[in-house]
Design a protein around this nucleic acid. Structure first.
Lengths: 213, 213
DNA sequence: TAGATTGTTAATCGATTAACAATC
DNA sequence: TAGATTGTTAATCGATTAACAATC
């Protein structure tokens, strides 16, 4: 497996491959060619082969790809077999949606703490995780050294929390708040998710279609 | 304004520009050069100028860009001044998060209906929108012809609803369910949002950092 | 006028596509 | 063996960066 300089575009396609391979498994399909997969995913066969060959290539000439093997190779590439610890901050609607819909263990993370600023939520258990008060965050992090934090806070609250966590040594963030985490922290890895941007893009595309056919 | 064939990459940067320009306004900054904006956004000045010049260019030599003007030009490009009608389906945590955090009118949409399959939610009013039962969706769409639908459903429920809406003539989708809407409908415009993919990407990056420095 | 910074063209870089030899 | 399909190299295409003349 030759890593080194995988492009962002390739990396962002890997989770999508992983998802589609899961769908194939559910359909009972055990074998697929790059051509067939391309058709399903709206890519080209060439691109798929190039992507997989960034990591070594997992197919077999004349046969294609074994779905189970390919999926587990991707799981390995994405690091799902080596769990990292994560905390989640903010159990409003977004936080709850994440907690209820995402199986952390299946995607490389072990959720070790959930925090909110609301006293009334403290102690409540959501998906096996007791909610802790945000005031205990500092102590908790010094003791447990989480690798990553999932931020589900309102925009205004996000910035100070990010700064606090950076100081505490947290290196990875998934940010669902509409605050844009800026990457002046060279060691931090950030994935910003902006709901609003998708609506804006859709607005553009719908108008574009009406105007330009 | 010469449109024609704006690349996906440019289109996806526009909402981000819009957001950053809003931040500048909040900071009371009225004027910015491509160089300064590039620094804030982790882009290059060249790229910013190229992006804006896809739509005609809104700056002034020797001065830079007027923040208010640029922001409202982008609002116009994204179509925020010509509202389209939208419905939202599914008022679980994701649906509520969207309803509570997003101001539709400010990003080109007017929300005309909210639906859920749970009888107990019907009639409840969330952010000025009464929840309707999903069984009334067909009739509602035939009467009101919504332009877009925001899907906040579980994976299994998403597929049939998409097919139903396509038949009813809905052309745009923002899809927050983990079902991947496939674009075999040539007229439909889809923005899929996959929470999980972000976590997976973060997992990759964190491991990559540990392994390769 | 001099300085700054855009709009825009040209050069570079990277990603996708095409082609085909290797091989299952 | 013949057919299929990969892995991989080469060609193309597109996006980013660099450079600079235009101009405020």
């Amino acid at each position: 497996m030759i890593k080194g300089a995988i492009s962002t575009l390739v990396i962002h396609r890997m989770p999508r491959y992983y998802r589609f391979l899961g769908n194939l498994q559910e359909e009972g399909i055990t074998r697929i060619s790059s051509r067939e997969l391309a058709e399903r995913m709206n890519l080209t066969a060439s691109q798929i082969r190039q992507d997989f060959n960034c990591f070594g290539g997992f197919g077999q000439q004349g046969y294609g790809y074994n779905v189970d093997i390919l999926k587990s190779e991707i799981a390995h590439i994405l690091g799902f077999d080596r769990l990292q610890s994560a905390i989640l901050i903010g159990v409003g609607n977004i936080g709850r949606a994440v907690l209820k819909n995402i199986n952390f263990e299946s995607m490389g993370f072990s959720l070790i703490g959930v925090f909110d600023e609301k006293e009334s939520l403290v102690g409540q258990v959501i998906k096996n995780s007791p909610v802790r008060h945000i005031s205990t965050l500092d102590e908790f992090c010094r003791e447990n050294k989480p690798d990553a934090a999932i931020l589900c806070l309102p925009k205004a609250a996000a910035k100070p929390v990010v700064e606090q966590l950076i100081k505490l040594g947290v290196e990875g963030f998934v940010n669902f708040s509409s605050y844009d985490i800026n990457l002046d922290y060279p060691d931090a890895t950030v994935e910003n998710v902006h709901f609003k941007d998708c609506l804006m893009t859709l607005s553009y595309r719908l108008h574009d279609k009406k105007d330009n056919g």
